[in-house]
Design a binder for these strands. Structure first.
Length: 427
RNA sequence: GGAGAGAUGGCCGAGCUGGCUGAAGGCGCUCGCCUGCUAAGCGAGUGUACGCCGAAAGGUGUACCGAGGGUUCGAAUCCCUCUCUCUCCGCCA
């Protein structure tokens, strides 16, 4: 959420910044509502002031056993008027608030203007794509052959975009989770957390999923619980409505959670395999920082996520999203894209963003500077470190052998009971 | 699921027979005084949000005692609904 006062005082600047996003916002309408809002506030507060003064007078009169009937009658009318105006004011303020919650964040100055992902800027590449002297298979073929990805059973149990992992597949899922959590907690100094997987509407609004993107979320019938689409939601909301001591910043959290997404807009995209699932596992990284350091913290967050791919020895590149491709809440985002041999292209496996104070204002997460100035909003950041399912896709495809077996990356072997290779049950 | 208790400022804790209570008292914190150092002591200050005035310093108004409604000229105080916490019983991984 943007600061209403900032919009009011920097209208042309904000308009210019938002025009580079692929979303249209009529700020003039907001400014007019805000003008009306302040007008009504002045009106009702003047009446309240009068009522307070006269009520005190009534109290005095009564103490002196004098008659206050005239004042009381007059205040009855004033109170009724206050009530009427208040209803109007509440309506206006709700409209203003709702409007504000639907305005996307302002892109950081370093974010390049562009239309869509085609305009994203490649920042770097790491490693080399593996070379095959045979035709590399897609992960769904490899996984089915090995008996570790069971798409038919997944669909039978739940439906499309659900997959049953079994045997070494299920084991690798668990191994990847543990490997990533161990790396981030032991070497990158994130605190491990294990949050609720269902959250309320307030938390979803705090991080920006609501009110605008409800159709992307799974919701529990007959209650106000939503299944989390990412650990970002419960973990960022850990400090909802809190004021943090500056001394304890920056705060680093990591969490493994399953993620649930309706994928409403992606019908027909990646229908095969486990690239787009309604349920997938992810290890997430979340940071709370002071405003001055958030961009250097974004760089180190990105490095922490990259480290996972480096240790798995998977070729990847990093792109900086352009204004048109930027998510609703983000001021700046780096995507890490891993190489998929079967597709001959890079596929997003992590998204690392700085939200600046956009989420903090919504979720009311502040910090008190040591200089005892007044509390300010923190900056929040998060990134996948990494998406587990897509990491498995990358491993299956990049480590595949001609005979259909798949080597287990060295760093994962201790997490898989020393297993070095996944082979077909028959062999 | 049943019965009961509670939610007040950074913290503890009064007020809850409605009217100088933004809120006693204590702790903490800040500044000053005092003190050879430390401790103690003394004095003053110490919330947030929004509106208006002001270049600013600041001034001023309104709101806020879990949340939302209601009664009343006036609500932290009375009534209703909800949320959360605690205790006991039942059930349960």
């Amino acid at each position: 959420m943007l600061d209403l006062k900032f919009i009011r005082e920097n209208l042309e600047f904000v308009k210019g910044k938002l025009s580079r996003r692929n979303q249209r916002v009529d700020l003039d309408q907001l400014v007019e509502m805000d003008r009306k809002r302040r007008e009504v506030i002045q009106e009702v507060e003047a009446l309240r002031n009068e009522r307070n003064i006269v009520s005190e007078k009534i109290a005095t009169l009564k103490q002196q056993s004098k008659d206050a009937a005239i004042e009381i009658d007059r205040m009855k009318l004033v109170s009724q008027k206050i009530k009427d105006i208040d209803i109007n004011r509440a309506g206006i303020e709700e409209n203003v608030q709702d409007f504000l919650l639907r305005i996307p964040n302002i892109p950081h100055e370093s974010v390049v203007a562009g239309e869509d992902e085609g305009d994203n800027i490649e920042i770097k590449r790491w490693g080399e794509p593996p070379e095959f002297n045979f035709n590399p298979q897609a992960h769904w073929t490899i996984g089915e052959e090995l008996g570790i990805l069971d798409f038919e059973r997944g669909a039978k149990i739940a439906g499309a975009r659900f997959t049953l992992l079994r045997g070494a597949g299920a084991l690798m899922e668990r191994a990847l989770i543990n490997f990533m959590l161990d790396l981030h907690t032991r070497e990158h100094h994130y605190e491990e957390t294990f949050p609720p997987f269902l959250v309320n509407r307030i938390s979803m609004t705090g991080t920006g999923q609501l009110p605008k993107f409800e159709e992307d979320l799974f919701r529990i019938v007959d209650s106000e619980y939503f299944l989390i689409p990412t650990a970002e939601v419960p973990v960022t909301n850990i400090h909802q409505n809190e004021t943090i001591d500056e001394k304890s910043l920056p705060i680093y959290y990591t969490a493994y959670t399953p993620c649930f997404r309706k994928e409403a807009g992606s019908h027909g995209r990646d229908t095969r395999g486990i690239i787009h699932q309604h349920q997938f596992d992810k290890v997430e990284l979340v940071k709370f920082t002071a405003p001055g350091t958030s961009y250097q913290e974004l760089e180190s967050l990105l490095e922490n996520a990259e480290e996972v791919l480096k240790r798995l020895n998977l070729h990847y590149r990093v792109v900086s999203l352009c204004t048109g491709d930027l998510g609703f809440s983000a001021a700046k985002t780096y995507d890490i894209e891993v190489w998929l041999p079967s597709q001959g292209r890079y596929k997003e496996i992590s998204s690392c963003s700085n939200f600046e104070d956009f989420q903090a204002r919504r979720a009311n997460i502040r910090y008190r500077p040591t200089s005892k100035a007044k509390a300010r909003f923190v900056h929040t950041l998060n990134g996948s470190g990494l998406a587990i399912g897509r990491t498995m896709v990358a491993i299956l495809e990049n480590y595949q052998q001609e005979d259909g077996s798949v080597f287990v990356p060295e760093v994962l072997q201790p997490y898989m009971g020393g297993m070095e290779k996944i082979e077909t049950p028959a062999s």
